[in-house]
């Protein structure tokens, strides 16, 4: 595949998904039996009983009395120009909220990913080199367990252990490393479980390949064998697996931020969902989806760069 084709394909995918999410949220809201204006009114002025009069005010101020297809087109156009409207709860621009919370999330996700990879690759490699040993068994059971247990349980245990029992971190206040390291560690643990399995399998598989043996026949010294012939081939399944890791990252952002009460995109999303703040919800979900898609695109580009073949 050429680079242009790859990029075009990815762009098409991103466009399709953006429109899918926007359509989903639009029609879900508009096909409801209850009046959307009533809901918005209820959500916005929670406390006072929503009534018809209030609903009409809301309806007019949000343009909800126009024909539905016009609203739909308007909604899609707004989404594509990254204009998600204003939050129904705070009245702030949704983009502003995304940028604000996104910064926080990006920090934990980035370091969590780096730490997770840094944890998974040596673990997987050691497991593969000593496959079948006690060390391998222990690490396998541990990583398999930690990757299958829902991350909210892992997060609760981490809070209990490091914050409540040992007092090594705080749950509020600063956004410095005193607080962040537990979050990063939790994210790293939750992604490294699966990733280390993949690394282990990839390394074992590649070491069993006939071309490794034949490289030895060609005289390649054993200590150089893996780095020369194994690495590039073992990396491929790991790179192919990255989208799954990114998906886990997105889930972790939501769950772990909620448990740690950390003000990032996930935390904001859960609050927006509870307040039925539709524009903010849609904006946050799209931000997370686009972040995920950008990550997978990057990993695809990396794969393409490493394994590209000249058109023959």
């Amino acid at each position: 595949m050429t680079l242009a084709a790859l990029l075009a394909r990815k762009a098409l995918l991103i466009l399709t998904i953006t429109l899918l999410v926007a359509s989903c949220s639009f029609w879900a809201v508009h096909l409801l039996p209850e009046n959307i204006a009533m809901q918005i009114a209820a959500a916005r002025f929670s406390g006072t009983e929503p009534n018809q009069q209030l609903a009409e005010v809301v309806s007019q101020s949000y343009g909800l009395d126009r024909p539905i297809l016009v609203q739909y087109a308007d909604w899609l156009a707004g989404t594509l120009t990254l204009d998600f409207g204003v939050s129904l709860v705070t009245g702030r621009d949704v983009v502003h909220d995304i940028a604000h919370h996104g910064q926080n999330s990006l920090r934990t996700v980035f370091w969590g990913f780096i730490a997770g990879v840094a944890l998974a690759i040596p673990t997987g490699y050691v497991c593969a080199r000593f496959a079948g040993s006690h060390l391998d068994t222990v690490l396998t059971v541990f990583s398999a367990a930690i990757s299958t247990i829902p991350s909210f349980l892992v997060a609760i245990v981490m809070v209990q252990l490091f914050v409540v029992e040992l007092g090594l971190a705080t749950l509020s206040g600063t956004s410095g490393w005193a607080r962040l390291w537990v979050l990063v560690l939790t994210i790293a643990l939750s992604i490294s479980g699966l990733l280390s399995r993949v690394v282990r399998t990839a390394v074992i598989d590649v070491r069993l390949q006939p071309f490794m043996l034949h490289a030895l026949i060609r005289g390649v010294p054993e200590r150089e064998l893996f780095w020369r012939h194994g690495l590039k081939n073992a990396l491929r399944p790991v790179l192919n697996y990255l989208p799954v890791v990114f998906m886990f990252l997105i889930y972790d952002v939501i769950v772990i931020e909620t448990v740690f009460n950390y003000h990032g995109l996930g935390w904001a999303l859960i609050n927006a969902v509870k307040a039925l703040d539709v524009p903010l919800m849609q904006g946050l979900v799209l931000a997370l989806v686009l972040f995920y898609l950008c990550c997978t695109t990057l990993s695809d580009l990396l794969t393409w760069r490493i394994y590209r073949r000249k058109a023959s």
């Binding site: 390949q209 006939p210 071309f211 490289a215 590039k232 081939n233 394994y307």
Partner: peptide, 15 residues
């Protein structure tokens, strides 16, 4: 020196 049955498998596919 051994010439294996399947040269396709004996050569590193990425080098």
């Amino acid at each position: 020196f051994v010439l294996p049955q399947e040269p396709a498998l004996a050569l590193n596919p990425t080098m």
